[in-house]
């Protein structure tokens, strides 16, 4: 009888040691992919587009995004937690939430650039009027042309639990949207307009035009004129 019990205990201890060994092995050698190099694969050119975009301003930003997800605890896990929470003096403020969900955090640092300017492919023939030595040019509205947050600009600082690539990408898209809004709030479009007018004015002046008028489609405050004439050459 005792021999059987002893054998059972030895067996149980062996199983426990094996499980612990696997866990330790996975913890130490399971990941370690920082030094991994990606395999050499071809880069395929899918499309070549002719564009005419004038980039006039760039906004640099760095955001720290903190997100979390509450994962439904499994019944078995809840049972274990219930045993902990029912101990006297445990002091969990919101017992039901503690029992129901497990919280996983993800903190990312996103460094990005927001580019704004003009898409000249929107220009129509009527936007450029020339008479002798005078030119009138109507600018299209300034816009955010690109928000660049590349993988090398994106640092995952804390990642608890399992987060899919899609979830990480979604967070990156949120960062891009926020950066774009912040850039607009900082006045990137107004700056774009000022730079574009200055640039085109000097370009037309160098081409020999004497009267230069550059109009803007940018919505200004009501007390400002929509058409912003550039200074006329004397």
């Amino acid at each position: 009888m005792f021999k059987t019990i002893r054998l059972f205990i030895y067996l149980a201890l062996t199983i426990i040691f094996i499980i612990m060994g696997i866990l330790v092995y996975k913890a130490y050698f399971g990941s370690r992919s920082r030094v991994l190099k990606i395999d050499n694969t071809a880069i395929m050119v899918e499309e070549i587009k002719k564009i005419s975009q004038l980039f006039t301003s760039v906004y640099y930003d760095e955001l720290v995004l903190d997100t979390f997800k509450l994962v439904d605890k499994a019944p078995g896990e809840r049972l274990l937690d219930a045993m902990v929470i029912m101990r006297p003096g445990h002091g969990v403020a919101n017992g039901m939430n503690y029992l129901s969900f497990r919280r996983f955090n993800m903190v990312v640092i996103a460094r990005g650039r927001v580019f704004s300017g003009y898409d000249f492919s929107r220009l129509q023939e009527s936007d450029l009027l020339i008479e002798d030595r005078s030119i009138t040019f109507q600018l299209p509205p300034p816009e955010v042309l690109e928000v660049v947050i590349n993988p090398s600009d994106y640092e995952i600082f804390i990642e608890e639990g399992r987060w899919s690539l899609e979830e990480a990408v979604a967070l990156k898209q949120t960062a891009a949207r926020l950066m774009s809004h912040r850039a607009i709030e900082m006045g990137i479009l107004e700056q774009s307009e000022t730079i574009a007018i200055d640039l085109l004015y000097n370009f037309f002046k160098t081409l020999g035009f004497e009267t230069i008028t550059i109009g803007s489609n940018f919505p200004h405050t009501p007390d400002q004129d929509i058409l912003v004439p550039a200074p006329t050459l004397e």
Binding site: L54, F55, T56, S57, V58, Y59, Y60, D61, E62, L63, V64, L65, D66, I109, F115, A175, L178, R182, A183, M186, G187, I188, Q191, I195, L199
Partner: peptide, 13 residues
């Protein structure tokens, strides 16, 4: 989100 740095710069490309 917490914005750490921000800077606006000119360009003409």
């Amino acid at each position: 989100p917490i914005s750490v740095i921000h800077r606006l710069q000119d360009m003409s490309e």
